[in-house]
């Protein structure tokens, strides 16, 4: 196998994979530039000369601005907080699981697994009733708490796997060399653990960002409504016209952070995901 041939082969494979992965995104991107009356042109691209940024204007500076921008703010805020809390709690928990011996370790892991397979739809109604009665309905905490049920389990599993791989002897070695416990931890362990924690944060953020069911069921106003739920609130020019363009434009905007994170951290995310799930 000559190297040119393999390069060409890999070039083709990469293009195929890229088309697979990016085509639907490109599709909705093209839709987002279609004018409302051009939506039915049955073509991938807007009709020539008809391409418009009107849909973006509608959601960023126009009618739907209040709806979309507040939803975007809610989504970002809620997801960041939920991610932060999940990562903090999971770091503590995973450290204990990886390094300490205590009864119930398996129980914690099993619980995390059970929670992660929980049908979200099953707990939405009881949560709704509970949130109503204690005033958490339609608030940020009212979404952050259920988001923890999505982000915590995977964070614990991913981090536990990460921490198991850290050569903790380094800490002792550093201590032997005269460092204090704190210094040893900071100099030897943090640099090894930080990438894992960071990766976990990105994965947790993706999961929270993806939620739809909690978003539509536990909010009712701009106070807490996240983006995926807000997409269902867009309207066309009247009650019966479909907001295809606005939805597409909003879809593209909420996909931008995903693409940026992926571009910047693909290596970390891949290693985080692959280590979290299976480690022989």
């Amino acid at each position: 196998m000559t190297s040119t041939r393999s390069k060409v082969l890999w070039g083709i494979v990469s293009v195929l994979v890229a088309v697979y992965a990016l085509f639907p995104v490109a599709s909705i991107l093209a839709t987002s530039f279609k004018a409302p009356s051009d939506l039915t042109n049955q073509k991938f691209l807007p009709s020539p000369g008809q391409a418009t940024t009107g849909n973006y204007e509608q959601i960023l500076v126009g009618d739907a601005q209040g709806l979309f921008l507040t939803a975007l703010r809610n989504s970002i805020g809620i997801c960041l907080i939920a991610t932060f809390i999940a990562v903090v709690l999971a770091t503590l928990c995973a450290y204990a699981i990886a390094r300490l011996d205590f009864p119930g370790k398996k129980l914690v892991l099993t619980t995390a697994l059970a929670v992660s397979i929980f049908p979200v739809i099953s707990i939405v109604t009881p949560l709704f009733n509970l949130w109503r009665s204690i005033g958490l309905y339609d608030t940020w905490p009212g979404l952050i708490i259920p988001y923890l049920s999505l982000t915590l389990p995977i964070s614990i599993w991913t981090l536990a796997a990460f921490f198991r791989q850290i050569p903790w002897e380094l800490e002792q070695a550093a201590q032997v060399d005269g460092a204090t416990t704190w210094q040893a931890f900071r100099k030897a362990i943090v640099p090894l653990a930080a990438p894992g924690v960071f990766t976990t944060a990105i994965i947790a953020f993706f999961i929270a960002w993806n939620d739809f069911v909690y978003g539509i069921s536990l909010t009712s106003t701009e106070a807490a409504r996240p983006v995926p739920a807000a997409l269902a609130f867009f309207t066309g020019a009247s009650q019966f016209e479909e907001p295809t363009g606005a939805i597409s434009a909003a879809a593209i905007i909420v996909t931008i952070p995903v693409v940026v994170l992926v571009l910047a951290f693909q290596r970390q995310i891949v290693s985080g995901l692959t280590q979290g799930a299976v480690k022989g």
Partner: peptide, 23 residues
């Protein structure tokens, strides 16, 4: 090509399901 491949593959992973459904 490893980096670009990983990036491409992660895009569907990170995208919101609702967005995928609409697309």
């Amino acid at each position: 090509v490893r980096g670009p491949l990983r990036t491409a593959i992660l895009v569907p992973y990170g995208i919101i399901t609702v967005v995928s459904a609409f697309a």
